[in-house]
């Protein structure tokens, strides 16, 4: 379990992070999100000891950890941080050896990661000749080479195509199932919605909301009901409910999940209605709500 309390960081007069705290359990994926400049990367770099935090405490398994390297963590930086003149194999071996792994273990781990990422590019290929997405994958593998318990990923979905996006999502969920604690930040909110168990929303360094994602969505209460647009629905709606036509569907916004269920039951009685689905508020909408005064 990773526990963070009171994390703060100031760059000169600029408050980058203020009194940030959270807990990440095993099997949990915590999504860290917010506007640009909200302090996500600063938080991760403080956690990794890459920058010195001004205040705060970090505990792993109940034990306070020292300043410096969190060698049991796996960290994927936001930017590419690879030696472009090295081959994929040399890169992964280098980072494995930095973590005192034996060559056999590194080779075994490379095979596992290649299979997990469905990576087929030859090991001798120079990193500099890879596409942005493939470099991201190599960097991802380098971050996981030592099979860390705590994985910190800063914008892991950047540069990935749709297919690899899904594969990465699935990979992260598998990692969580294996008992890892995963922190990740992203501006791709659909991905956060799909895989995160909990969410930390930052704005200008301050925590706007934090907690279990389901609870946060339930607290907000807003839901959408989607129905095929040929069917008239206005007579079923209350004054504070809105409907929006998107393609062949009508999207109805309700204020509570209970109201959404009631509306669905009403609409289900209409034999003309074919498609009916209820969705809770999305992460994107949640962030907008929390960050807008």
């Amino acid at each position: 379990m990773l526990e963070v309390k009171g994390m703060s960081k100031t760059y000169g007069k600029h408050l980058a992070l203020s009194d940030c705290g959270f807990t990440v359990q095993k099997h949990e994926i915590l999504g860290v999100c917010g506007e640009n400049g909200s302090g996500k990367t600063t938080l991760f770099r403080c956690l990794m000891g890459l920058i010195a935090k001004d205040e705060g405490e970090i505990r792993v398994g109940g034990k306070k950890i020292d300043e410096g390297v969190r060698s049991s963590f796996g960290y994927l930086p936001e930017q590419r941080s690879l030696y472009t003149d090295l081959s994929i194999e040399d890169t992964l071996v280098h980072y494995g050896r930095l973590r005192n792994m034996e060559r056999d273990a590194i080779d075994r781990r490379i095979r596992e990661l290649y299979a997990s990422f469905d990576f087929t590019i030859a090991l001798k290929t120079k990193v500099g000749s890879l596409s942005k997405g493939n470099q991201q994958k190599v960097q991802f593998m380098a971050c996981l080479i030592h099979d860390p318990q705590i994985v910190i990923l800063d914008e892991p979905f950047t540069g990935l195509d749709y297919v690899n996006l899904e594969k990465t999502q699935s990979f992260l969920m598998d990692l969580a199932k294996k008992g890892k604690c995963i922190l990740l930040s992203s501006h791709q909110y659909d991905e956060l919605d799909a895989i995160c168990n909990s969410l930390l929303i930052l704005k200008e360094g301050k925590t706007m909301d934090y907690g279990n994602l389901d609870r946060m969505k339930n607290e907000v209460g807003k839901c959408t009901v989607k129905v095929n647009s040929q069917v008239p629905v206005l007579q079923h709606l209350k004054e504070d409910e809105t409907v929006e036509i998107v393609g062949n569907s009508s999207i109805i916004q309700t204020q509570t999940p209970q109201r959404a269920k009631k509306l669905m039951n009403l609409l289900a009685k209409d034999e003309a209605i074919r498609d009916l689905a209820m969705e809770r508020i999305k992460v994107k909408e949640l962030i907008r709500l929390r960050c807008t005064p």
């Binding site: 000891g49 390297v69 960290y75 941080s81 980072y95 930095l98």
Partner: peptide, 8 residues
């Protein structure tokens, strides 16, 4: 960033 995440 990557190097210092693995070595102090």
């Amino acid at each position: 960033d990557m190097v210092l995440s693995a070595a102090d």
